[in-house]
């Protein structure tokens, strides 16, 4: 069903479904909640203002993910020029779903080390792993968003995991 991004009802429908996805994308690229919120806001304002026609909801979702990913990457490049990467990692907001103190500490350590490892990945691997693991896209969808072949996505996912594993192992030892 065709939809127009400037139509309020259609916009709300897309927003409900896509906001969590692009928020995860923005967050796992920048690892800063406030910056991620600004990026999502920027992406949705552009989406509304451009008043584009999309064939399906998925097309709108891919457009938003692509814009968010680009905004987030631009943001970290800008940030990298200003501050050191370790400063960014201090801004990571820990989640609080664990009530037991010991396990919460363990969870935070694990979460933080994974996020730190993801932040260290080269841009092309980071993008693919974020879209795969956090945005929940399959290889075909990732290839559409990034305009690369599916086999290229497959290779990048494999290399990204390999690199993450190496970083996490180094940190453990």
């Amino acid at each position: 069903m065709e939809m127009r991004s400037g139509d309020e009802a259609a916009f709300r429908q897309v927003y409900e479904q896509v906001f969590p996805v692009i928020m995860k994308v923005a967050f796992h690229v920048t690892y800063n909640l406030d910056v991620s919120e600004d990026i999502c806001q920027d992406a949705f304002v552009r989406f509304f203002d451009k008043n584009m026609v999309f064939e399906t909801l998925d097309d709108a979702k891919f457009w938003l993910i692509r814009v968010t990913k680009n905004l987030a990457i631009n943001q970290i490049k800008r940030k990298a020029r200003e501050t050191a990467s370790l400063e960014k990692l201090k801004q990571v907001t820990p989640t609080s779903s664990y009530k037991d103190g010991a396990s919460e500490l363990l969870f935070q350590e694990s979460t933080e080390s994974v996020r730190k490892a993801v932040a260290q990945l080269p841009e092309k691997y980071k993008t693919v792993i974020v879209l795969k693991e956090y945005a929940g896209l399959d290889y075909q969808q990732i290839s559409k968003v990034l305009s690369i072949s599916e086999s290229n996505v497959k290779v990048r996912v494999h290399r990204a995991r390999k690199e993450l594993e190496a970083i996490l192992r180094r940190e453990d030892s």
């Binding site: 796992h28 694990s110 994974v114 996020r115 693991e133 995991r161």
Partner: peptide, 8 residues
């Protein structure tokens, strides 16, 4: 492990 680090 990677999946668990997702934003809440």
């Amino acid at each position: 492990t990677i999946d668990d680090a997702v934003l809440s």
